[in-house]
Simulated assay, not measured.
Amino acid sequence: MANPESSPLIDVMVCLATVTPPQLVSVQVSAQATVADAVRASGVLDGADLTVDNCRLGVYGKRKTPDAPLHARDRVEILGPLIADPKTARRRRVQKVRATGTREGLKWLRNGAPPEAPPADDVLE
Rank of each mutant, 00 (worst) to 15 (best):
L9G: 14
A2D: 12
L57W: 00
V97A: 08
E116I: 05
D46Q: 14
Q32S: 14
A2Y: 10
W108Q: 02
P66M: 02
C15I: 10
A41P: 04
P22D: 09
A89D: 08
P69R: 15
L109K: 12
A38Y: 01
A84Q: 13
A99L: 06
Q28I: 03
D49N: 13
R40C: 04
Q95A: 12
L124G: 02
D74T: 00
A89I: 11
A48I: 07
R92I: 04
V52D: 06
D53S: 15
R63I: 11
G47V: 12
L82V: 14
P118I: 02
W108T: 06
A31C: 11
D85S: 01
G47R: 14
S42F: 02
V12L: 01
K64G: 02
A36H: 10
W108G: 01
A2G: 09
M1V: 10
G101P: 00
D67S: 12
A36G: 09
V14Q: 01
R92S: 05
P118R: 06
A89E: 13
V35W: 01
P114G: 10
R90Y: 05
E77W: 04
A38H: 00
Q28C: 10
A113L: 11
K62Q: 15
V35D: 00
V29Q: 00
V35Y: 01
D53K: 11
P69Q: 14
A99W: 02
G58N: 05
N54H: 04
D122K: 04
G47T: 14
A99G: 11
E5A: 14
H71V: 04
T34L: 03
G61A: 11
R73P: 04
V76H: 04
N111S: 15
R56Y: 07
Q32P: 09
K107D: 10
Q95L: 15
V59L: 08
P4G: 13
P66C: 07
V19F: 08
T100V: 00
R92W: 02
V44Q: 04
P4W: 05
I78F: 07
A36P: 07
E5H: 13
V97E: 08
D49K: 10
D85M: 01
I78E: 03
A41T: 13
D37L: 01
D11Y: 07
D49W: 08
A72N: 15
V29P: 00
D37W: 02
Q32Y: 11
N54Q: 05
A38N: 01
P115V: 09
Y60G: 13
Q28V: 04
P4H: 09
V94G: 05
D46W: 08
R56G: 03
A99S: 13
I83V: 14
A33R: 04
D53G: 11
R90T: 12
V44W: 01
G43D: 08
Y60A: 15
P4S: 09
V76F: 00
K96G: 10
E5N: 14
R98S: 08
C55K: 01
